[in-house]
Design a protein around this nucleic acid. Structure first.
Lengths: 143, 143
DNA sequence: TATCAACATACCATTATAATAGGAAATAGG
DNA sequence: CCTATTTCCTATTATAATGGTATGTTGATA
């Protein structure tokens, strides 16, 4: 399993917010109930989204969260990289500043780079608005 | 980082075996030294490759390992799925027999399926023979 | 000013990762 | 047949990540 609950839940929260993107702020408790995810756990996820200005929070009565941008301006790849702390398929491609000592003789790096490209291209093609629309397709197959 | 050392090391071992695919069997100690990986750790990886008939072992003096098939018959995707225990991007796509209760209302499943496809298509396009050839390209860039 | 909800911090149980250690079994060369 | 060699097999372990839970503080507003 390549993507953890953090990335998956974050997307679900953003879609939920986009769908209830009406007047004011949305309480996290409401999202938690609709999505059937622990509110406390969602807090730690939303905190990350707030810090990166994908979502805006307002405390106090009538407070809650709302999207900081339009759904079609939120790129899925950005959200996933943020929540997962990068999505490089191998350590060698995490730009940690240090070069792998075996890079000259490495026979697999090229392959990993290609995989990284393929993943990046796919996840950066989708926005939160795109995910909302998948509903229409009626994806009620058995997994 | 999506792929662990098990998957990465397994590929390096297979490439190493393919490159030294001469007369007889190759000692794991030799591979370990060339690849600068602990021999004991490699054992646990190669054991998995033996069990799945990708590699054949022979014990005793003059023993070692060799590929069970030709390098271009070993698909990288098969090796990775084996070593990583599946490569589904999310739990929902691991065919564990049970259906997600939220499948009907899930807005992200379609997206994850697409990601799974893209990854699968890429890694199943490569064989160990392909990886050997990347040497010629001279991939001496800085990461 | 009471209430509500975000924000902050700390803690915790379980699992995965990346090994290491020690010995048993088999094979081939002498 | 014996012995060195090398795979094979079964633990054990340290560290980190995952997936939470608990408690309390701050700030907005009705």
């Amino acid at each position: 399993m390549l993507i953890s609950t953090k990335g998956r839940y974050a997307l679900r929260v953003l879609i939920d917010m986009a769908e209830h993107n009406g007047t004011g702020y949305i309480k996290l408790m409401d999202i938690a109930q609709r999505q059937e995810i622990s509110e406390k756990y969602l807090e730690s996820i939303v905190k990350e989204l707030v810090r990166n200005n994908i979502v805006t929070g307002l405390r106090g009565k009538g407070g809650g969260y709302r999207l900081s941008k339009e759904p079609d301006d939120i790129i899925v790849g950005d959200v996933l990289r943020l929540m997962e702390g990068g999505l490089a398929p191998v350590v060698c491609l995490e730009n940690s500043g240090k070069t792998c000592p075996r890079v000259a003789e490495c026979r697999t790096l090229e392959f990993w780079r290609g995989l990284d490209d393929v993943i990046r291209q796919y996840i950066d093609r989708y926005t939160v608005a795109d995910l909302m629309r998948t509903e229409e397709n009626g994806n009620d197959y058995i997994i």
